[in-house]
């Protein structure tokens, strides 16, 4: 029994209720509309929930650190990314070379942060391009509706069936491997998922506009769009973008590993892993270990952050 109820019983039992309590309650102390729970705005609520998700926050922290290292990491290193030093080839990690050196004596530490630049750049660019194409295509499809929507959705359905890595390989073979072509090739096939999501959100929006117009909410319209619509529509888009990044990073590493990645002197993690493949048997573990570790950690970080965002942004879970 709660404290209030105990007190309640006490009052009944002792009949200690004073007569003057039976006066009508003054109106100003009555507030039927009073909200007793603090109402958080959608974004700060989502942020609070994300903060509580330890795994997602670890991911976010890692990504921030990685971005900083990608930008400033090479500054800490006395070695340049293309500095070839044949006498120093395949040296184990030391005070001079923190992550060791590769078969041309290049510093793995420095190259790892250059790899981070490329991986993050490819991932972010792919997500951004997907976002723009997806918003335009999905937006038109959802907004136009009817026949146009029907045709556009059929096209998406067909594109969805294409094995995207094969198409990307084909494009790279033709266009020749470079950073730009990798991003273009990934975007050619990658926007389909985003377009689907945006279309779904636009359909919701249309429906809501219709409802708003018919009920003439007036000044409240803007508020409703900001409070209800944007959170509902932006949530899935943000999550999709977050999850596009690791897919693109994987694709870049995969293609580099196939020999279709960017060319020397620049190094992506996939290229570094591919170059290090012969060392599996020789015992020069650091060659493979560092690029492998950072690809995996980065993908892991984006995945858990995406999961966390999904949980935090999904209004359905809000009770």
């Amino acid at each position: 029994m709660s404290l209030a109820e105990e007190k309640n019983q006490e009052l009944h039992a002792g009949s200690t209720i004073p007569d003057e309590w039976f006066r009508p309650l003054k109106k100003e102390s009555q507030d039927a509309e009073k909200v007793s729970r603090p109402s958080l705005s959608y974004w700060s609520d989502a942020w609070q929930r994300l903060l509580k998700n330890k795994l997602a926050m670890t991911g976010l922290l890692f990504l921030v650190l990685l971005a900083l290292l990608a930008i400033f990491g090479p500054i800490f290193s006395p070695h340049s990314v293309r500095e070839i030093n044949l006498p120093n080839q395949n040296m184990a990690p030391s005070a001079e070379h923190w992550f060791g050196t590769d078969e041309l004596g290049r510093d793995v530490f420095t190259r790892t942060w250059y790899g981070a630049r490329i991986s993050l750049f490819v991932g972010l660019m792919a997500a951004l391009i997907d976002f723009f194409i997806g918003v335009i295509y999905g937006g038109i499809s959802g907004y136009k509706g009817g026949r146009a929507d029907n045709i556009m959705m059929r096209i998406i359905e067909i594109l969805y069936g294409l094995p995207y890595l094969l198409v990307v390989i084909l494009l790279l073979v033709v266009m020749g491997p470079s950073l730009t072509t990798i991003i273009v090739a990934l975007s050619v096939t990658g926007w389909v998922g985003m377009a689907r999501i945006v279309r779904g959100q636009v359909l919701q929006l249309k429906h809501l506009e219709f409802v708003l117009a018919s009920q003439s909410f007036g000044a409240k319209t803007r508020r409703i769009i900001r409070k209800n619509l944007l959170p509902n529509t932006m949530g899935p888009i943000i999550v999709q973008m977050t999850l596009t990044v690791p897919t693109a990073i994987f694709a870049e590493a995969f293609l580099s590993f196939l020999g279709l990645g960017i060319q020397a002197p620049y190094a992506s993690w996939g290229v570094m892993a591919n170059d290090a493949l012969p060392t599996i048997l020789s015992g020069d573990w650091w060659r493979l270990f560092f690029p492998a570790l950072f690809i995996s950690l980065t993908m892991f970080a984006f995945n858990v952050l995406g999961d966390g965002l999904q949980d935090a942004l999904d209004p359905k879970l809000r009770e």
């Binding site: 209720i17 309590w21 039976f22 309650l25 009555q30 507030d31 509309e33 009073k34 007793s36």
Partner: peptide
């Protein structure tokens, strides 16, 4: 009006806030 929030239900009669005949006692016990 709307029913009270059951996260922290009132200690008195829960209908007090919407009741046209509410008395001080309703709010308390």
């Amino acid at each position: 009006g709307t029913p009270p929030d059951l996260f922290s239900p009132p200690q008195g009669c829960p209908f007090t806030a919407r009741c046209p005949f509410a008395m001080e006692v309703c709010d308390k016990v």
